[in-house]
């Protein structure tokens, strides 16, 4: 088990060393935020809700490296907590969207016929609702509890994942090895999961990364509008919102959480681009 793990660590290290500079930066940012989400809250210097400074919208000091917020709470602690919420919600929604989209796409493409056509038509309709609109409509109707937010984001991004997965599955489906499996008499399930699925894993993982970025941006945007995570919980987007009046004082409390989001999403994007660039080079 330990040997296995070391093996993975060496592989990850070798992978990173093969990346271009932008990819390494992305790798470092993703690693940083993964650790922050896992360990952040326990490393936070102050409790998340505690008012610890007299100074509201305080600037960078040794005691409060990222300043203080509109009530005088420690921004570093609040960002570490907010990051876990942002990443957790987005991860759950992105996994749900990718898994649902991929599953429906593979099954629909393998079965074919009018089912495939009907599903495709419905997804086309869902895609033409901009995801932010869909999310707004859902929040207006159902509210904004964390579970509902995950469902809303997942639902908004499932059609996109479906579209990518389906075009991949359709491409694979026409290939001769799938035809050979059909001529061998294989069933739909075998063809879908053994013949088609393994050949779409890599592009779908890349798509999952992009979808995660979309969801982070969506959820932060919703929270920024006051329609996402509700107080007293606060994700990174809510942190920007609650401190927005500090903008005119140039308070770090506004810009820091926004920068945190950007460094997370840009990091994921850079990493995925470097990785998919590498795999396409190897294929050539």
């Amino acid at each position: 088990m330990i040997a296995e793990r070391r093996h993975w660590a060496t592989r990850a290290w070798a992978l990173m060393k093969g990346l271009p500079l932008a990819g390494r930066i992305g790798f470092a940012l993703v690693l940083f935020w993964a650790l922050a989400a896992l360990l952040g809250p326990s490393l936070a210097p102050h409790p998340v809700g505690a008012v610890v400074a007299m100074d509201v919208y305080g600037t960078f000091t040794a005691a409060h490296p990222l300043g203080t917020d509109y009530l005088g709470r420690d921004m570093l602690s609040r960002i570490l907590h907010g990051a876990r919420l942002t990443i957790g919600l987005a991860l759950a929604a992105a996994v749900a969207a990718s898994v649902t989209g991929t599953t429906i796409a593979i099954l629909s493409a393998t079965i074919g016929g009018w089912i495939d056509e009907g599903v495709g038509r419905l997804m086309d309709a869902l895609i033409s609702i901009p995801s932010k609109m869909l999310a707004l409509v859902m929040v207006a109707s159902f509210g904004a509890s964390p579970t509902l937010l995950i469902l809303t984001a997942a639902f908004s991004y499932t059609p996109g994942a479906f579209r990518i997965a389906r075009s991949l599955a359709i491409n694979v489906r026409t290939l001769d090895y799938v035809q050979a499996a059909r001529a061998r008499g294989e069933g739909t399930g075998y063809i879908a999961w053994v013949e088609i699925f393994p050949n779409m894993v890599n592009p779908m993982l890349a798509d999952f990364g992009l979808r995660f970025v979309f969801v982070v941006l969506l959820l932060s945007g919703m929270s920024f509008l006051g329609l996402g995570v509700q107080p007293p919980d606060a994700d990174l987007g809510s942190l920007v919102r609650e401190n927005i009046s500090g903008l005119f004082e140039g308070a770090p409390a506004v810009v820091m959480p926004a920068l945190a989001i950007a460094s997370l999403t840009v990091g994921v994007n850079l990493l995925i681009d470097a990785l998919s660039g590498r795999s396409s080079q190897v294929e050539q």
Binding site: G237, V240, L247, I261, V266, N269, D273
Partner: peptide, 27 residues
């Protein structure tokens, strides 16, 4: 340009907006 555009698409609008306000309106 690739790295620049790749980063730009992932930046939330409110970061750009707040920085723009900070620079052009506040500072």
């Amino acid at each position: 340009l690739n790295v620049a555009t790749l980063s730009m698409v992932a930046v939330p609008e409110f970061l750009i907006a707040t920085i723009a306000v900070l620079v052009f309106a506040v500072k």
